[in-house]
């Protein structure tokens, strides 16, 4: 009798303390794949570089006073007029490429994060509301989602930029417009599965207010897939921003993103000055690959169907 009681108590204790018990194995499983470890380390390094750019960069590329036109178009490994090394060379205005990359990362990451987060918020809300409300509202939202998803993202972005004009803020807006539908579809999909379950029915019968059902029950269940999509979407947004900047539709010349840096080097490419475009491109590639590796692994770990 005593032992049975102890057993029950043990079970209860185990049930009360699930977060650390469940989170730790998930984290361990996440890092079990070497690719995830590489991706996570890379991502941490990239974010650190972006955050501490003012401390790490040899030069403030936005400060025109620090630029010396005499130093323009120097190959990697050259020294500045003042004797400082340019590890990755300089661009047409004598700007240090390495510093440009560090500062450019900031713009790219901010644009990527901001657009992915806002798109996730809008999309998830729309998807959840659609699933919860059902009926005409649902049909209307999902029709819009289907319509949007049948157009490629770049076309949606071009449409927004064509109407609103160029600029960083408009690029962010364009990416949001282009990407929110993906979240909406996912959120609705998972919420629909949840909606059919009995406890939602029970909650409704108990006249628990709608927003509580939504926030307490439906939202947590679609969080995992949304996080996975959002991770991947940050990479896509960074790539899209770079592309739009390259096309001359995006970031301002004074605060260049990686895409702008690459575009700046385009004109020098044909004369063989490869480093102006090459190194920012490598930085962009590493950023996107790191995020994708992390996202890939997140999907494997968070998806219960794939987990072993």
């Amino acid at each position: 009798m005593d032992s049975k009681l102890a057993d029950t108590a043990g079970i209860a204790a185990a049930e009360e303390a699930p977060p650390p018990a469940r989170a730790w194995p998930a984290i361990r499983r996440f890092f079990a794949a070497p690719s995830a470890l590489v991706g996570a380390l890379g991502l941490v390094a990239i974010i650190a570089v972006a955050v501490f750019a003012p401390l790490l960069a040899p030069q403030d590329p936005y400060d025109l006073m620090q630029l010396d036109i005499m130093d323009s178009r120097l190959p990697p490994g050259s020294e500045s007029f003042a004797g400082l090394p340019y590890h990755l060379g300089t661009d047409g205005q004598g700007r240090d490429i390495l510093s440009g990359i560090m500062y450019g990362l900031r713009t790219s990451l901010i644009v990527g994060l901001a657009s992915a987060i806002v798109a996730a918020l809008i999309g998830t809300t729309a998807g959840l509301m659609a699933a919860y409300l059902g009926g005409r509202a649902e049909t209307a939202v999902m029709r819009l989602v289907d319509l949007q998803l049948s157009f490629p993202t770049i076309l949606m972005a071009l449409m927004v930029l064509a109407i609103l004009g160029n600029g960083v803020a408009n690029v962010v807006l364009a990416i949001i417009v282009a990407e929110w539908a993906t979240y909406a579809r996912t959120a609705r999909g998972t919420a629909l599965v949840e909606r059919e379950k009995e406890y939602i029915e029970a909650a409704r019968c108990l006249r628990i207010p709608g927003h509580r059902v939504l926030l307490r029950h439906m939202l947590p269940n679609c969080l995992a897939p949304i996080i996975v999509i959002a991770t991947m979407q940050v990479a896509r947004a960074i790539g899209l921003e770079a592309t739009l900047s390259f096309l001359g539709l995006g970031a301002s010349v004074t605060q260049p993103s990686l895409g702008m840096l690459i575009a700046n080097g385009y004109q020098y490419l044909l004369s063989g000055l490869y480093w102006i475009s090459f190194y920012p491109g490598i930085a962009l590639l590493l950023t996107i690959v790191s995020i994708n590796l992390v996202g890939d692994r997140l999907r494997d770990v968070l998806n219960p169907r794939r987990a072993r």
Partner: peptide, 23 residues
Amino acid sequence: SILGFSLPTFWVGLMFILLFAVQ
């Protein structure tokens, strides 16, 4: 194929030019 997904298309285009046209 993962690389094909991650590589920014426009940058690869530039590298094509650099390698096959310039170099």
